[in-house]
Amino acid sequence: MGWFIARRLGQFLLLLFVMSLVVFVALFALGNPVLNFINPSSPPDVVRQAIHNLGLDQPAYIQYFRFLSGIAHGDLGNSYTSGRPALRLILERLPATLELSLGAMLIATLVGIPLGLGAGYRPNSLVGRFVEGFSLLSVSLPTFWIGLMLIIVFAIETGIFPAGGRGPTTDLLGMKVSFTSLEGLRHLFLPALNLSLFPMALAMRLTRASVEESLRMNFVRYARAKGLPPRRILSVYVLKNVLPSLVTVMGMVLGGLLAFSVITESIFAWPGTGKLVIDAIQISDRPVIIAYLLFTVFIFSTINLLVDIVCAVLDPRISLRGAAS
């Protein structure tokens, strides 16, 4: 088990290093961002001074090493526009994005897994047909389009939920959260629902497929031969077999949601990291973009690492296999 975790940790660090390189190189190709911020008709020495202040006159590899040592100190540069540390901007916005993603994940799991279990157990039932239709629609409808529909129906036409914004927040362990008040929950619901549709469909389809597969397994027949009630077979024998793959996929999806929240945050004016980076891309605020991408990749990879470890705990055969190979 220890060896298994160590190996995954090594891969994780390697991935982060490669990503820092990729992100840096990709953005170095962006060209000179200074002209976006100062008047192009400024005298040449003013431009030169601005470039020098930002360290952009150094060779690329020196910039990269300064960038790496900055990362080591938790310094990803200052925003070109606000002058504040980029990482700080991101961390300020992070609770909003986390709250949104976790809310979406909660909805997706609570709705998706039971429906998938039902659809897998009785494919021709009403639930089975619903899951089939829902999964075709969910791959066909882009998130932003569904978000617009939600706003039209639930905010503009009926006014049940607000159309955007985060609403009132309260401090919880130093983070601003909105799920603690009813008004905050009302603001959270539509964006979270919007973001949850993709992982929900995924959870449904995956659960359904693995339940169908599990039901054909010999151990389910054996559990029936032991006279176990169907409820027990489904909720323990089948679910226990389905869970590791489900945790894997849902965990990876949670990482993906942090990135996907870009769309939902833009539609619902949700003040999270996604909205921040879209604004930064539009004005080429390079440190903020780099900080966001690295941070997202970091979180994404951390979650994947945790998922692997949880899976090894859930399925005792995995760590054994990992150690043997």
């Binding site: 990709a26 962006l30 891309i281 994404f300």
Partner: peptide
């Protein structure tokens, strides 16, 4: 394993 939107974001951030 990466979400497609993240890859697209990286590239579009780089190239405009």
């Amino acid at each position: 394993s990466f979400p497609s939107i993240l890859i697209a974001l990286i590239l579009l951030a780089a190239f405009g």
